[in-house]
Amino acid sequence: MRIGIIGAGALGGTFAALLARAGHDVEVTARGAGLEAIRASGIRLSGAYGDVHARVAAGERLTAAPELVLVCTKAQDAASAIESNAELIDGAPVVVVQNGLDGVATAARLLPRSSCMGVLSIIAANYTEPGVVRITTPATSYLGRGDGPADAECTRIAALLSEAVPVVAIGGFRGAQWTKLVVNMLNAVPAIVGRSVQEVVDDRRLRRVVTASMRETVRIGIARGVRFGALQGLGDRRLRLFARVPLTLGQVLPWLMRVRMGGVPNLGSTQQSLRRGQPTEVDFLNGAVVREASVAGLDAPVNRALTALVHEVEQRAASLPAERVLADVPV
């Protein structure tokens, strides 16, 4: 199958390499040093899915009409990247592989003739060198759309992608997006202090902040009428219980996530963006919680403070001491 992948970073590069290994005709888009590296040396993938050296067509835009499209850009780049390729891809099935809550709706708005769906990926991948991706933690990805059960097209696309990497079609996708948003609360604090996720969770003071951001996210989701989807051992009942327990007891949740990661340092996608000198997706992660809280007539002070601190690190191009997190975040 001809598959176009818009954005060949950590996840885009992973899907591109594995789909090419499975025999698909893959073309990717990239920019700058990433594009130069892929054109010169292909995509080099290592780690949990084995070693893959994939030579794929690459450019700033797709050049051939694909039969399937994966949008794997950062959330803040999705609209412009889709618009740049819209004439060629509108009408093809589109899968948005992205953090945050808005990706599928954005694609559907810009591509009215396409059938749009989303993928939630828990794969941990380090992408700090152009064209080179290392998988530190493998995981099943989850494909769906909306609030209803998985439809026939979602099931078909999930089966096709599973030829390369495990993907399961799920119902209640919107609720699963919120569960993934809770998981993504692991990103901000490591990015601010310049440590791995494991090191942050191992620090009891910083683990408390991470727990507070997760609990605030769950509480805002509940206020917005969300039924959390099952993802990585988390689900609606467990997260609602987590929202009620004392903060000290709630720290078990990020600790269990840390154990699942293993010993290979996980930087998190936000910190990887900072290390590459690129804008982060914090406005679509912690910032999304702040916006959803506002819609519900509530405040999200923990995530508002973390969003501001990540933006400060972006502007300074340097991490901040842990003491700033402890002083600025109201826990």
Rank of each mutant, 00 (worst) to 15 (best):
T137K: 15
A65R: 15
V325A: 10
A17E: 02
V252R: 14
V209I: 15
E153I: 00
V119G: 01
A78K: 10
A30T: 10
G59Y: 05
P301G: 07
T14C: 12
A40D: 14
L326P: 13
P138N: 05
R237Q: 13
L143D: 01
A317L: 13
A308C: 09
R276V: 04
T155R: 15
V245A: 11
L19Y: 00
G34E: 14
S213K: 09
V193G: 07
A308Q: 13
G7D: 06
V302E: 11
T270L: 09
R324P: 03
V259W: 11
L62P: 04
V97Y: 01
R258D: 10
L298Q: 14
L143K: 02
I5P: 01
G13Q: 12
N303R: 13
I220K: 01
N266G: 04
I82W: 04
R208V: 06
G100L: 06
L120P: 00
M117S: 04
F173G: 01
R219C: 07
S46I: 02
A191G: 11
A327Y: 07
E216L: 12
G118Q: 00
Q76A: 11
G4E: 02
L320K: 12
T307W: 13
R324S: 12
P254D: 10
L267Y: 14
R195F: 06
P254F: 08
L143M: 14
A191Y: 09
R44F: 08
E27Q: 10
M257R: 08
T140N: 09
V168N: 10
A317F: 08
K180S: 05
I6M: 02
A159Q: 13
P279M: 04
L101F: 03
V313T: 12
V226A: 08
E36D: 15
G194C: 12
R113D: 11
I82L: 15
E83N: 09
L231G: 01
P112H: 09
P112Q: 09
T14F: 06
V259I: 15
D77F: 07
